[in-house]
Design a protein around this nucleic acid. Sequence first.
RNA 1: GUGGAUGUAGUUCAAUGGUAGAGCGCCAGAUUGUGGUUCUGGUUGUUGCGGGUUCAAGUCCCGUCAUCCACCCCA
Length: 436
Amino acid sequence: MADRIEPRVLKGFRDFLPEQEGRRKAVQTILEQEFRRHGFLPIDTPVLEYTDVLLGKGGGETDKQIYRFEDNGGRDVSMRFDLTVPFARYMALHRNELYLPFKRYHIAKVFRGENTQRGRYREFTQCDFDIVGVDAASADFEILLLMVRSLQALGVREFQVHLSHRGIFNRFLSSLGIAGQSVELLRTVDKIKKIGDEAVRAELASLVGADAAEKVMAFVTASGSAEEVLHALIGLAGNEPADTGRLAAVLDAAGAVGIMDHVRLDPSITRGLDYYTGIVFETFLTRLPEIGSVCSGGRYNDLASLYTKEHLPGVGSSIGLDRLLAALEELDDTAVVAQSVDVLVVSFTDEDMGANHALAEVLRARGLAVEVYPEAKKLGVQFAFAEKKGIPVAVICGPEERAAGTVNVKDLTNRTNHDGLSVDGAAETIASILGR
RNA sequence: GUGGAUGUAGUUCAAUGGUAGAGCGCCAGAUUGUGGUUCUGGUUGUUGCGGGUUCAAGUCCCGUCAUCCACCCCA
C-alpha cells in the first residue's frame, strides 16, 4: 500500500464544519437582506488580478502581505487582499455600463500572507458595502448607518463605531508644519489604545519634538460627547466645511435617526491604509475590544484615479466576517443559529423505503424541510442522529401505522409523542412544534 | 517577516530519562417499535512530523509544520 498523504491545510487557512459554515451562511444571508434593504446591489470580481492593478503605484506595506506569483502564461498575478481595490478597478472598467451614484455590496474571500493570530487568518471573508460617485455627507452617513444596522441585524448589541476624519488631522498637522511626517504620525497615533497615552507621547516627541507632540496629543485625546470633541477639534484645527462641517453633518444625521448610542467621535482613529481621504470608521465590540475592529472603512476620493481620469469618489466599509464570528462565539452572543431540517422520517424496514420518501415528499409539499433516514436501524440510533444534527421532529410510520393509515409525530426537543395522526394532523402538529 | 510559548486517545488533561494513563465521549449488550438513568463489556495513540544524544526519549538537543502571544499591520 502506498504511503498516505498527510491531510492538512495551510497555515492561516481553514476548513469549516457544517455547524460553523451554517452560521457563516446564515450571517451572510442576514447581511445581504440588510444591504438590499438600503439599496445596495451584489457584484463579484476575480480572486486573481494583475499584480500592477492591485499594488497600484504605492506598493508599500501591502507588498509584503500579498500572495503573488507568475501564472502558467508568464503573467505577474496576485490574489486580492481586499475588496476595495478590485472594486476601484471594476468601477473604472465598467463605468459606462453603470450609473452613479452606484451602491454595491460584495461578500467574498480575500488573502493576506501575514502572520496568523486569533481572529487573524490568511484567508478570510470580507463583507464590503460602498457608495461610489458622490462626495456627500449623506453617503458618509449611510455607510455609518448600515454599519450599525448590520450589526444590530446580527443580534450584536454592545458595540461602538468610532469615527474620525483624516482631512482634519492632516490639516491640523499642516498648521503645525509637520504634515510631511503624517504617515508616521498616523501610525503612531493608531497605537494609542494598545500602548497608552504616555508611550505614544514619547514616540511622537522623538518624531516631531515635545511641543508639537503635546499638540498632537491634545488633538487625538480630545474626549467627551461628540459635540464636545468636535468643538475641541475645531478649536485646534479651525472650522472648514469640507471636513469639520462634513463631520458635523454626519453626526447630526446620526442623532436624527437615533443611533448615537453606537457612535463615538474618536480622533485617535486614523486607519493604516493610506488611500483614505476623509471620514474613517472602526467598530469595536464593547466586551471584546482586544480582538480589534470588526467593521472598518472610510472615504477614499482618489482610489479610482489609479485606473481612470474620471473622478470617482467613494465611501464604504467592510465587515470582517470571520473575526466577528470568532468574537461572537467567544462572547456566546450568537443570535444566529444554523438551521438544519425540520423533520426526520425514521425507517423501520428496507421495504418501507419508497413509502418513507413518498411521505417526506408530502411533508415537503407543505413547506417543511424533511429528510429520510437511509437505513432501518434501531429507533434510538435514529433519534440520536436527529438530535446530533439538530432536527427537532421525527415522524414515525412503521408497518402498524401504515396498515392503520396513521403516522406518529415525536417532538425530539422534549421527547413527547403525538400518535395516531392523519398526515394533515401530523403536518399541523409539526407546525405547532416548530412554532409556525 | 522577527521574538517567545505550546503540541500526548474523538475531547479535556496526567505520566522523577525506565511497560503511555484517567475522566468525559464513543461502540456493543441487558432492552428485535421509541435515545436523556443504571449496569456489564469494549474501543481508540506512528506522544504533530523528521532527525540526533542515550542501554533506554512523551520527557534532553536540532530541524520542520501548526496553534497561541508580542512586534508590525489589519478584518
